[in-house]
Amino acid sequence: MLIPIFKPSIRRKDMDSVLSNLISDSIGPGLLAKRFAQSVSRYLGVAGGVALREYTRSLEVALDALNLAPGSRVVLSPLSPGMYLHVLKKRGFKPLFADVDSDSPVISVDSIKNLLSHDPHVLLIHYHLGFIPDMEEISNLGIPIIEDISHSFGGNTVDRRCGNYGRYIIISLEPENIITSGGGGMILAQRSKDLTAFKKVISDLPEETVLSDINASLGVVQMSSLESFIQARKEIARIFTQALVESKHKTLIQSIDSENVFFSFPVLLESGMAEVRKYAEKKNVQTLPAFDSSIIKKLNQNGFTFPNAKTFFFRTLLFPLYPAMGKRNTEHVARVLSTLP
């Protein structure tokens, strides 16, 4: 049986808890969504948040809350999710692309600094594959940050958790991410005045914009297991890293003094991706090009050049890594990694 590239960490007892929450007489409509957002806010140590039905909507609300004028300039990495570009263009904003570091797929501080002459209005920072850029130096630039911690939820720098640098923080809650509510997203704010600003934006949207209680209930249960999820990911990554040493390939590493979360297991290939994928599939292991849905896939068609991002785009392949893998599947993937062509 094929080991899928992603699988949500949902146990039978989690679904029992979801059902118990939904039928509780003490919980009214919408309260579970509030409880979920409060749980995430407490974990991150921020002012508050709102869970939404769509991840894309989380970014839209964050941008609208900043009250940016059409033509505003937004700095982001070309390895960011492709939907970013759609949202920016829809609002008439101008993307400014900063390359990533040469040794890690994180947005480069030097590349951001090279764009300061364009007077950017916002930095849109995505923690690609859970790896953490130099957020201390980035935050010292004094430009408002929207921080996307979908891949890095639970990670931290020396001083702070990921999610403590942005004016607004967004999270995807789709099944492949660190925690899931079965779909949707969340927006949070560090400061009370920014929380008020984005809640005003949400108040003008349809009522069904907010995450449903059944989805939020799953999110509440997931938050109660977050630390165990993160530890399980670390242990599996340790096993896979040791196995990969036997091959000619290598994995990516956190390049600054921070503790990343393993969103998946990335392999930086020394041979052709098609050959490696064919071998893994033959061994019943699903793989995925790491940045197949990123912006750079579109930029490549338009003559843009970002040498470091292009390297990661063409050479990084993801292998399954998630808490629900189990011992047998973990050992099988490790054997495959150790024998990759």
Rank of each mutant, 00 (worst) to 15 (best):
I138W: 01
H126F: 11
Y127R: 00
L66S: 07
L66G: 01
I23K: 10
F36N: 09
A47S: 11
S20A: 15
Y84H: 12
S117E: 02
L63I: 13
L31Q: 13
N21R: 09
H118F: 12
A51D: 06
L63A: 10
L123D: 06
E137S: 15
K89M: 11
P78L: 05
I125V: 15
L116D: 09
N140I: 04
P105T: 14
K94E: 09
Y55G: 02
G30T: 04
S72C: 00
V106S: 01
A62T: 08
I107E: 00
S111P: 05
D101A: 10
H86V: 08
D101G: 06
A47C: 03
V50K: 13
S20R: 13
I125T: 09
G49L: 08
A47P: 01
V50N: 06
S111T: 11
I23F: 12
H86Y: 02
V50D: 00
P105Q: 12
D134P: 04
M135C: 03
L59S: 02
L115E: 13
R35M: 15
F36R: 12
R35W: 04
P81K: 07
L68H: 04
V46H: 03
R73I: 14
R35S: 11
F93T: 06
A98Y: 10
N67W: 00
S77N: 06
I138E: 07
H118P: 00
L116Q: 12
I132Y: 00
D110G: 10
H86N: 09
L52P: 11
S108G: 08
L124D: 08
S72N: 04
F131Y: 15
L52F: 03
K89A: 08
Y127L: 02
K94I: 15
D119T: 11
G49T: 07
D119C: 07
V109S: 07
P70R: 11
V122D: 04
N114V: 04
F93R: 01
V87W: 00
S102N: 05
I132T: 01
V100F: 05
L22D: 08
R57M: 14
G49I: 05
M135T: 07
L63N: 11
L96S: 08
L115A: 02
A47W: 01
P120S: 09
F36S: 13
V87E: 08
K113A: 15
A33F: 01
T56S: 13
L88I: 10
S39H: 07
G49E: 04
V106T: 12
G49C: 07
F97C: 00
D101P: 00
P133H: 07
G82I: 12
A69E: 13
Q38C: 03
F36A: 13
R91Y: 12
N21L: 15
S117K: 02
R35G: 15
G92P: 01
S24T: 09
E137T: 15
R91H: 14
S24I: 07
S111W: 01
G82A: 13
D110V: 07
S117W: 04
N140R: 15
R57T: 15
L124N: 02
V109N: 04
A51F: 10
K90L: 12
